[in-house]
Design a protein around this nucleic acid. Structure first.
Lengths: 109, 109
DNA sequence: CCGTATCCTCTACGATACTG
DNA sequence: CAGTATCGTAGAGGATACGG
C-alpha cells in the first residue's frame, strides 16, 4: 500500500490552517488595502489583546503572507503589509466575504 | 455614536464560523459531489471519532448547509447531502482548495 | 448501522503587568 | 510605540463504552 497523493480535501485543510486563527482573517482584511502599523491594527480591532495581535501577526509572517517593516525612528515605527505571495490569497478572501454577507442577511431574516 | 454597519471584516468572520470546525471543510469536500452515508464519511476520514463526526454534521445541518436524510430500513440508512443553500458555499470552497494546493507545493520545495 | 453519554486532555485564547 | 512574560481559563477536541 503506497502513500496517497494529496487530494482536494487536504488542500482546503491546508488553507484553513493558514487562515484559521480567531483574528487572522480580520487582520488580513484590514491589511488588504494598505499597510498598517501595530497600533493602527490594535485600534481597528479593539477587542484583541496585544499578545494575540502579536502572535497572529507572527504566524502570518512565518507563513510569508505578510511582511514586517521596521523603522528605527523614535518613536518606533513598525508597519505590516501583504507580501507579494500573500497577495495571492486575496482572491480567496473575496468569496469568503461575499458568502458571509449573504449568510448574515439570511440568518437575520 | 450609532451602531456601525457590518463591514467586509465582519463578513469573512461569519463565513469562518460556519466552516471553522476542525473537520468541517473536510466533510463538505467529501459531500460535494455526492451524498454520503455516515459510515462512508467515517471511512473516508479514518482519524475522526464518531462523536466529532456527529457533532460537526449536526452543526452543518443547523447552519442549513447540509441535509440529513433517514431511511428507516434495517439496517438504518442515513445519508448526508448538500442543501440547495449549502451549494452556494461551493464557489468558496474552490478557491480555498486551489490556494491550498499552491501553498502545499510552495512549502514542500 | 448510527448514533449517545462520560470523562478527560490540551491548547487556543485572554487578563494583566512589565520593558526597550 | 511596539512589544514580552506569566498565569489562568473555557471550550474544542478526543477515548472509550454503551444503546436503539
Amino acid at each position: 500500500m503506497q502513500l496517497e497523493q494529496p487530494t482536494g480535501a487536504v488542500f482546503v485543510q491546508t488553507t484553513l490552517k493558514v487562515l484559521g486563527g480567531k483574528w487572522k482573517l480580520l487582520i488580513l482584511w484590514y491589511l488588504k488595502d494598505e499597510p498598517k502599523r501595530f497600533s493602527e491594527l490594535k485600534r481597528s480591532i479593539p477587542n484583541i489583546t496585544e499578545k494575540m495581535l502579536m502572535q497572529q501577526l507572527r504566524e502570518l509572517e512565518k507563513d510569508e503572507i505578510i511582511v514586517r517593516n521596521v523603522r528605527s525612528t523614535v518613536p518606533l515605527k513598525v508597519e505590516y503589509s501583504f507580501s507579494d505571495y500573500g497577495k495571492t490569497i486575496i482572491p480567496v478572501l473575496i468569496p469568503l466575504c461575499d458568502w458571509g454577507k449573504e449568510h448574515l442577511q439570511r440568518i437575520n431574516s
